[in-house]
Computed example of a mutant assay.
Amino acid sequence: MVLKTLTIGGSDTWGGGGIQTDLRTFENLNTFGLTVLTCIAVEEDNSFAIRSLPVELIQEQLQTIEKNFQLDGVKIGLLATVEIVDVVLDFCRRHQGEFPIILDPVLAFKETEEQLATNYIQKIKELFPLVDLITPNRNELQLLADSHAIDTFEEMTAVTQSFTKAHPVKVIVTGGGKVSTDFFRDGEITQAFTGPLSNRTTNHGAGCSFSSAICAYLAHGWTLIESIEKSKRYVYESIENGVVVGDAGNVWHPTKRKG
């Protein structure tokens, strides 16, 4: 029976991140990808803008999934508004413990949206007790922890330890050090995952791919630590095999892999 994994998140019109990358990752790792779309990223004044979907439409998408599918894993990406987070919170409460849930806390706000970002971050934290893992990068951890800039692996380690003491959540923070080092923290358990650092610029979507790969590997029955290790290798290979589409260099894996 085919495994079914759901991504709840935004559409990247440029095709390099968001649900587009999640679906490619799910397919490469032999799970059937389903989607609940929350927002769409478009170009505005030579920058990007996020257009949120109506909350009622997101609820209808989730109800459609619940009615028709037995899920094996869920990855949550960009939710965009506090109201959308509330809808996803209700979904997670209904299904907590039924399948692994991975939260990639995408924090994509312009500087002029400081108050919106603050409210959104506080609401996102309500998801923490309901998910199996969060996967922030260093910048996202800085915002979540209300910390100073995190420039070194040592700073990333210290902030992560302090953060997990304050919040009941397992976390792996990506992007530390001169080599590719990610830091995992689960209560008193800590582990660093170190691997080669790709010099290629085809890394757009790497964070999305990492969290959706963890979701897929968990759906296949691997442990959390095994899923993180496998996903780190998968993302490295995806960057190495990346493609240039338009002006962006996107992660890509041209061959399917067994889970």
Rank of each mutant, 00 (worst) to 15 (best):
S212N: 07
R185W: 06
R185M: 14
T202Y: 09
A206R: 08
C208I: 07
G205D: 10
A192Y: 01
T202A: 06
G207I: 02
G207K: 02
I189Q: 13
S198K: 04
R185H: 13
S198E: 00
Y217V: 04
P196S: 12
C215W: 08
F210V: 01
D186M: 04
T201W: 02
G187M: 10
Y217I: 00
H220T: 07
H220E: 11
C215P: 02
G195C: 01
T201N: 09
C208R: 06
A206V: 05
F210P: 02
Q191P: 03
L197Q: 15
R200Q: 12
A213F: 02
Q191D: 00
H220P: 14
F193H: 14
N203P: 00
A216D: 05
I214H: 09
T190C: 11
S211M: 04
D186N: 15
P196I: 06
P196D: 10
I214V: 15
Q191A: 09
T190A: 10
S209Y: 04
S209Q: 06
I214D: 06
F210G: 01
H220Q: 12
N203D: 09
N199A: 11
Y217A: 05
G205S: 07
S209T: 14
T201E: 09
D186W: 12
I214A: 07
A192Q: 14
I189R: 09
S198M: 03
A219T: 12
F210Q: 00
